[in-house]
Design a protein around this nucleic acid. Structure first.
Lengths: 113, 113
DNA sequence: ATCATGCTTAGCCATGCTGCTAACTATATA
DNA sequence: TATATAGTTAGCAGCATGGCTAAGCATGAT
């Protein structure tokens, strides 16, 4: 029953951009330095870095610097709040269907009398 | 392997706003007219209507007008592309773990010799 | 010490988002 | 027909986003 989870804002926002999803998809295959993320995208480095920082703030990617190379790694656990939210909505929705089902059943029984 | 699914953009973006998630959560309990969505939120009607149109464009809500009242209904199927995306990322991630596991196993076998 | 490489920062531009008010349309209701 | 109700539209203000270029570190190679 979370009233307003700002983390969910960050998470969904981070995933709402195709470039960022592409980056994530690439990182899911294994960690990579920043320039390898930029390569396939066709975007300039500063642009990629901005996207990267959005992913980091959402907790989806962790980075660490080794010499002059920053290595980026996907953090799958960060997706958990999203699946939790999905489950909760499903629960609400299904309990509503159940109540509706009860209601219909009750109506039918009343008609039988 | 979808290259760029614009629908996912809409979906994630729609869910990135707490007010919209609140509206969805309310609608999951059952359909409601626009003003009942506005009520608990504290926002003005035009604001709510904008949010509503975002939810509609993402397919998450369907509305229909009956007299002067517009009734809004949650469309749970619209969440499917999101869970699909999640599953795909998980698959990529896990296959990566498997490969890593194979690699480690191979290394250990080589050490045994 | 110099140069190349990889990343970083600052700052610009166009666009989009989220809230609002004010004015309007359309449907009940008296 | 007059009035209240439910929604709609237009347009504004302020801030965020997503792209860029240009210039600035910091580290590795020669």
């Amino acid at each position: 029953m979370a009233k307003h989870d700002p983390h969910l804002d960050l998470l969904f926002h981070a995933l709402s951009d195709p470039t960022r999803r592409m980056m994530l998809n690439q990182l899911a295959k294994g960690p990579a330095p920043v320039s390898e993320l930029a390569g396939p995208s066709g975007f300039k480095l500063p642009t990629i870095l901005r996207h990267l920082s959005v992913l980091e703030e959402a907790g989806l990617v962790a980075t660490q610097k080794d010499g002059r190379v920053r290595s980026c790694a996907f953090q799958p656990k960060a997706l958990q709040p999203m699946t939790d939210w999905l489950d909760e909505q499903r629960k609400v929705w299904e309990s509503r269907l159940d109540r509706l089902d009860d209601y219909v059943t009750k109506l039918m029984k009343e008609r039988e009398q």
